[in-house]
Design a protein around this nucleic acid. Structure first.
Length: 245
DNA sequence: AACTAGTTCAACCGCGTAGTT
DNA sequence: AAACTACGCGGTTGAACTAGT
């Protein structure tokens, strides 16, 4: 398949965006929307390629982006989601309103991976000590991670990992196997449908103007009092009931 | 104060894929 | 069915910043 060159090179600017460029992009999208990213820079009068505009908008300028440090809850959520979904940053971002895939990817590589490695070392020692004291047969843990990073996904033993381990057993007990993931991943690819389509919002009793993630989660049966474990289990169970589109 | 090493994060690149002609 | 276009995603890069010596 022949691929169109991304930036038509000649005359197109690269590198950091200036405040003026940001302003042009924002006001253009506010007035006209972004129907066609490729045509947008020309129409808006920007010397950038469409890809660059889209990236700038989705990662930085979008009004619904939450700036600032990640909370501990967000970080834990990322860790849990990463264990379930691997490096599918956009899928992870879809579960964290206001955060972009790029941002999450950066946080993962700069903070969370290190944090996991640290706790891994600590708890690894702990585990060795434990098995020496009580050499009982260990329950085999079923790994659902699709991540190609065995170091972070297979050996982490912090709290979230413990949650995930027991969660795996519960999931197993519920009769959830690999085929479940096929469904979850299918669902993920429909995230846009759930989150962006005004038609579907209307169908579900939402309209896009008053859409909120709280309502969305609520409609999915997620409760505020859920702890990590029951939260994910609920998501699992609800996923099976989601309509296939 | 000057230099170096390490860290962070915005932006780029290339690929896969869905949609269109 | 094949060719093409456009978009979105994940991996990577490099400039800016910070901390340590």
């Amino acid at each position: 398949m022949v691929r169109a060159p991304c930036c038509e090179k000649m005359g197109l600017k690269k590198g950091p965006w200036t405040a003026e460029e940001d302003q042009i992009l924002i006001s253009y999208i506010q007035n006209h929307g972004h129907g066609n990213w490729r045509a947008l820079p020309k129409l808006a009068g920007l010397l950038r390629c469409g890809k660059s505009c889209r990236l700038r908008w989705t990662n930085y300028l979008r009004p619904d982006i939450k700036r600032g440090n990640f909370t501990r809850e967000e970080e834990d959520a990322i860790i849990n989601l990463h264990q379930m979904l691997g490096n599918r940053w956009s899928a992870i971002a879809a579960k964290l309103p206001g955060r972009t895939d790029n941002e999450i990817k950066n946080v993962w590589h700069t903070h969370l991976k290190k944090r996991l490695t640290r706790t891994d070392k600590e708890t690894g020692q702990e585990r060795i000590r434990k098995t020496q004291i009580e050499p009982k047969e260990e329950m085999p843990t079923q790994s659902y991670s699709s991540t190609p990073e065995p170091s972070s996904s297979s050996s982490t033993v912090d709290n979230s990992q413990n949650s995930m381990e027991s969660f795996s057993h519960e999931a197993e007990a519920q009769g959830i196997d690999e085929s479940f993931w096929t469904e979850v991943l299918k669902m993920d690819s429909n995230d846009e449908y759930y989150c962006n389509s005004s038609d579907s919002m209307a169908m579900e009793g939402f309209n896009s103007s008053d859409f909120s993630y709280d309502k969305f989660w609520l409609s999915a049966g997620v409760r505020e009092e859920d702890d990590d474990l029951s939260f994910w289990l609920r998501i699992f169970l609800q996923a099976e009931e989601f309509p296939q589109i």
